[in-house]
Design a protein around this nucleic acid. Structure first.
Lengths: 125, 125
DNA sequence: CAGTATCCGATGCGATACTG
DNA sequence: CAGTATCGCATCGGATACTG
């Protein structure tokens, strides 16, 4: 358990869900987690697989996921360099709730689109 | 002002999960949905209950939730005006996955904070 | 009571170019 | 191969003031 002084820093987030949303609410984190759910992967492997993401954003995303303990980064002292990314236990434990979310999104995507169309139609009147 | 091609955007979403994350990934939507999960509420009621949110952002958040079909808005022709917000069927169907996410966040908030502290400690070395 | 208008700083993200 | 540096635009979100 954290000490009293540490806890004042650690718990400055008033709402736990913010930690999670700040991490997965961005453009790429979820796609990265999904890609790593299968197995450990390398940087350019992820880059090819996700496709749309720039190296810049993939790098930032991985760094934040690593900082927050979702992903581990292992560097092998080789030439050319090899870096492997994998889910941590924390990251794997997140796959469950995440999958629920993804399934809901798949099932209700069209309903959301319909609602948007109706809202826009109403606005034009 | 919306651009001329705005309506085309609706169908340009390649990935369903983006619709969901764009909606709940923001600062306030989830809190609003939680507040409305109990029962229908009025604008200032939500404002008082959520507390930190400005009228500005509460208004925007509710509008987006309404546009995406999560929330319904009913205006009663009275003086003073009364406006009630409620979850739609779509909004209610989202409570399940959302609760999963919130529970995971509660359970793992501490682990995330720990990971952040360790990452920061590593950076200082 | 239930909002909207305006301004402004912080952050997100892409494009491009460069590096060990 | 695996990144980082820099630039620039768009969006997010708070503060404040105003409105029907």
């Amino acid at each position: 358990m954290p000490s009293a002084s540490a806890s004042t820093i650690v718990f400055e987030q008033p709402c736990p869900i913010r930690d999670v949303l700040d991490r997965i609410g961005d453009q790429w984190s979820l796609l990265v987690l999904e890609a790593l759910a299968q197995r450990t992967k390398r940087f350019n492997e992820l880059h090819r697989e996700i496709g749309d993401v720039s190296r810049q954003m993939l790098s930032r995303t991985l760094k934040r996921l690593e900082e927050d303990g979702f992903v581990s980064r292992t560097v092998y002292a080789e030439v050319p360099p090899r870096v492997e990314y994998a889910l941590t236990d924390l990251g794997r434990s997140f796959l469950g709730p995440m999958q629920q979310l993804v399934e809901w999104a798949d099932a209700n995507h069209w309903a959301i689109c319909q609602a948007r169309l109706q809202a826009r139609a109403k606005q034009r009147n």
